[in-house]
Design a protein around this nucleic acid. Sequence first.
RNA 1: GGACGAUUAGCUCAGUUGGGAGAGCGCCUGCCUUACAAGCAGGAUGUCGGGGGUUCAAGUCCCUCAUUGUCCACCA
Length: 855
Amino acid sequence: MDKNFDPKKEKEIYEKWLKKGYFQPFEYGKSFSMVLPPPNITGILHMGHALNATIYDITARFKRMQGYSVLLLPGSDHASISTEAKVVEAIKPKSKKDIGREAFLKRAWEWKEEYGNIITNQFKTLGLSADWSRERFTLDDGLSELVEKVFISFYKKGHIYRGEKLINWCTHCKTTISDAEVVHSENKGKLWHFEYKIKESEETIKIATTRPETILGDVAVAVNPEDERYKHLIGKTVIIPIVNREVKIIEDSYVDKDFGTGAVKITPAHDFNDNELAARHELEQINIMNDDGSINGIHPEFENLDRYEARVKIIKILEELGQFVKEEDIENSIGTHDRCNTVVEPLNKLQWFVKMDKLAAPALDAYESKLIEFIPSRYGKTYAHWLENIKDWCISRQLWWGHRIPAYTCECGHISIIASKDEKVCEECGGDELTQDEDVLDTWFSSAFWPFSTLDFPNGRDFFRFFPTETLITGYDIIFFWVVRMVFSSISETGKVPFNKVIINGLIRDEQGRKFSKSLGNGVDPVEVVKEYGADALRITLIMGSALGSDQRFSLSKVETSRNFLNKIWNAARFVKMKEPEEVQLKCYFPSDRWLISKLNKIINEVTENMEKYEFGLALETLYGFIWEDYCDYYIEMSKITIDGTNASLNVLVLRDVLFELLKLMHPFAPFITEEIRNSFGKKSLVVSEFPLFNKQLDFLDYSVEEKKIEIIKVGIKAIRNLRAELNVPNSQKIKLILVTEDPEYFKDCIQYFSLANVKETVINGNFNEDSVSVRIDKAIIYLEDLFDKEKEIERLRKEVENLENEVERAASKLSNEGFINKAKPYLIQEERLKLSKYEEALKNAKERLQLLWH
RNA sequence: GGACGAUUAGCUCAGUUGGGAGAGCGCCUGCCUUACAAGCAGGAUGUCGGGGGUUCAAGUCCCUCAUUGUCCACCA
């Protein structure tokens, strides 16, 4: 074995796994399935993906080793709007319209072939044990067919309708977007106050607005009915400036008296609130805007003028008219498109919608009846809250790349919903002159079926075997986009929830706690990290020391820590390899062996329990401590002593077997290095090995006695080392120990281990010099025969006495507390009593010795 | 405006039913000890954000305040 593990080997190892087909589920057995969130084909791997994939893979490998037939299904998403934007960019200077739909889609597929696999391949470098033979793409024939089927099914069930409503429009992407795609952010804006004239009156009414350009579309002015200032004006007619439209002053409790002037201009075609208010008052709607955000022909002076230029112009005109009052600074929230950051414009459009009320109810029930569990549980509230307030989902997009809506308009005007493979005839008149709807569906519409579309619902074998899936792992930012929609779609179509558990992973931030972002340029490329430190190091970095669902900071120094840990394991293996014995059947252990085996057994239990709860961070921390401190720093060092004895080969067996168990425990976290080590011992792959099992019976044997004993010895070793450092005794100077105890048998077989503290000889209950420095451990006092320093010893004893007195006092007061005696659990009281007597004994001894040394 | 987090060693963070505060990094001291200097040994540092409460017992449960973050929301 080389001195260090070379991460370059990871690729080779991964390919071997693929070749062996290890990532495909077993033919039989209890199944455990998960679908991976399909990344956008436009995406490249970022740390968030890496974290998510790591959690998935740890789960999959763990379950596979437990004997489940594990399916981890990968795939990618066509990412309608993102991909379309890339292709639009690529065909420039030509436009979509220039080349036409067919040619455009051809280009898009070419783009997908060229770039679509980048992210998939990046997932492989992380060691993801996904079944690539089942890889899917949301625009694959089978999946596309299902999208149509579900659309038709939804339509028939009344979940889908077409209607003209105010929707979010992106003037840059020239398409509708859903509420979930609009990000609201606080913004410094202006609030302009204008004066509107009242017809046949000298009076005016002042209104305030952040969007003066929408004056062109005003259809009313609203005031609060309780507002004394305006009560007398209700019902009067005002004249909208510039357009000189005559509209009424109306009352509505929606209006906030204390905001602005207390009077609001109403523009129902360009504002959601105004729209609702207008509906209540049956006001007309006046559209003033083109699809690109410019003003339409509503007023010749503004035609084709951009909305922001129009705003400036209108303010200027009103100033000239003397109807401008003032402008003030204001904090308000504006909505932008999450993909392009363009300010979203509410516009009236004829679109397709998913009606949410009937779909949302069972999805909410599933959560409330605990069919779906969120981990951490607080995210369940986020899910429920969204469902409780959900609005209809606008699913049509004015794009070409995606699933085209299977709606066909006949010459007779009737719209038929027909799957593309079926014969296209109008359901109403039987005519065959049908035109298909130009729009495609929201990407998330097809993603919503991912857990069953990928398993060939409704008749596929995989569907029966692997649906519902077990666990979904995702970031909290995507609960609305994806989790909610998968649940209601799945319940509607399959009658089942798509998964039982939703694990929410946190965000990865930079060293200063900022989000990774392109504009900050603070991103760290996981692929680069993998290249330099290896996938294992990255995986461990992302898992260790972080709690589920909470954000974490990423830094290369953390990766180094992980790499060092892996290196530690590697080198421990090198040591084992060096000592590797002939096969020996007989089992006869030293105390250190029993200690290690007993402790390992407990660790197996602890790790397994935490892994079952998806508490991978805790499981890994347990392993880290056990491997580094117990196995390497103590056991290996102890084995160097025992291996020199007569039963060397027996001892090595434990050394090696425990390593093998540790490799298995570590394999889900660090699959490559563990596999490589195991390989070098000529053993079969860890991927198909069994995860270590907790052995309950060990508890009944005397292993725990040995475990306790070595722990006592460890305390002694540490104390001796400490004293040596304090007294400046160089390592080269070996010392002799006298161990004074009432139970010589107990210590007989383990005094050899004191050589870890550079002790050359230990004698039990021999004569010792009263001036020797001493160390107290459980059941014994150790005198360091060759070290005399009366002053230091007295000083040390004084400290000890002081400490012990405190301990005795603490324990005694606790035990004299009636409440404690009456209410604490019995074993705790027992423990406390034991401690007290131990401390009292030790205190007595220390005092006696102090007395002795004074003379 | 609402909801949900966070506040623990200099830094990054663990801490799973309440029962004597932990790790990694950094820092100081001494070691090239034949698996590992990506290492070994030793050491220092905490009013667990403030205040109140429940309890025999609170980092852990409840209330409140402060600072901070995220998400949701129709204030023009």
